[in-house]
Design a protein around this nucleic acid. Structure first.
Lengths: 208, 208
DNA sequence: GACCGTAGGCGTACGGCGTACTCCTACAGC
DNA sequence: GCTGTAGGAGTACGCCGTACGCCTACGGTC
């Protein structure tokens, strides 16, 4: 009966994401998104009740691009989880400026839940259940979230590492030495290396 | 020669933190902090050049409360790392509203570097070196950061878990089942359980 | 004791933010 | 053709960060 809506929520999210990708997260505002979509600032409030809800839409859009289907090419469950983690990382990193939003709203996102469901399936298939499975999922979730942020806030090859290498060696002997060998470690080695530590800890008997 | 400064940077940070703890992170503004300290809004700019710098001071203050000394009571290096992680978590969680700031500015904090230095010492003592040590430190850092955020954004015992348990079981069979057993897992079991997975993966041969 | 440079302190002002509110127009089904 | 909803625009309020200017208070050097 009513007049049809002129915008889908996904178009709204895409517009907001375009602003973020182009001008950075700080440039995200109701006004800039409205301008991006060619409408008046207040018009957005017909689609979201809040700036917060707009941010959630953006995150849903980003995470919605992540393939949540169970990987079929992998030979081991560990490999399947690595693929899932890699997909999530790829999806998030595709919009680096939006990472703080993605982290903030991930737990309320349906697409995020679909990812978790698949990972839980893999864990279950590996014989992990009960509270051990709860801990495993949360650990994976926490690691992936934290590692992505670290990678974005202070890449190993970035200026942060250079600044650390320039610290007084007397006060920070290990840190300065480690910073020098940090340049050899690429982002993939860092991310999947850490992930494999977790997976190795997850393999075998519950309590060593 | 000049007139003495009436405030230390630490007092400034403490004032800002008081605002955050009392009224939430959203209430943090140059004006509210100035009021807290009994000075005019613009007065703050004699101590910091920027709101960003004020936030860094807050983080330095929070992380400065974390004991970075090598633990002496622990019997194994794994235990020592657990103690270090626990100290960091305790320090950060003492100011839950400031967690987003802590995560955002941690990599530029001197107190954060001291923590890393100690952890690196423990890793070195455990016979871990080279790029393996780089990966280990980043993984620990990433896990601790991510886990703390998870714990704060969506505690296992919170409404998020309840919402997941109420999802349609047809679409999310594992998630709904896991959510029901998630209530039994306390925050400490979650945090240290995940950490032990990492440490177990770190123990033994580099590549299994 | 005079002077000078810096910090302290206060007030004003600008442009941008989220968002509440109002008023009018255009369309789809009864 | 009437009605209800969406579209669209405009105004306004109270925040925000912060640039700028103008006096005052103090601790050195002379």
């Amino acid at each position: 009966m009513p007049r049809p809506r002129s915008l889908t929520q996904d178009q709204l999210a895409a517009g907001a994401l375009a602003v973020i990708d182009r001008d950075g997260l700080a440039a995200l505002s109701m006004r800039t998104v409205a301008k991006e979509l060619g409408m008046s600032p207040m018009g957005l409030y017909r689609y979201v009740s809040d700036r917060d809800e707009l941010e959630e839409l953006v995150v849903e859009h980003v995470l919605g691009s992540v393939d949540a289907g169970t990987p079929t090419t992998a030979t081991s469950w560990q490999e399947r989880i690595e693929i899932m983690a890699g997909r999530l990382r790829d999806g998030v990193i595709a919009h680096p400026e939006a990472i703080p939003l993605t982290v903030l709203h991930r737990h309320r996102s349906l697409a995020g839940l679909r990812w978790s469901e698949t990972v839980l399936g893999i864990l279950t298939e590996a014989g992990i259940d009960g509270r051990r499975r709860v801990v495993a999922l949360r650990a994976l979730h926490g690691y992936v979230t934290g590692a992505i942020q670290l990678e974005h806030l202070g890449p190993l090859a970035g200026e942060g590492t250079a600044a650390i290498a320039a610290l007084p060696a007397a006060g920070f002997p290990h840190l300065t030495e480690t910073a020098r060998s940090a340049g050899e470690v690429g982002p993939d080695e860092e991310f999947f290396g850490g992930l494999r530590l977790l997976l190795r800890g997850l393999t075998g008997e519950p309590s060593p």
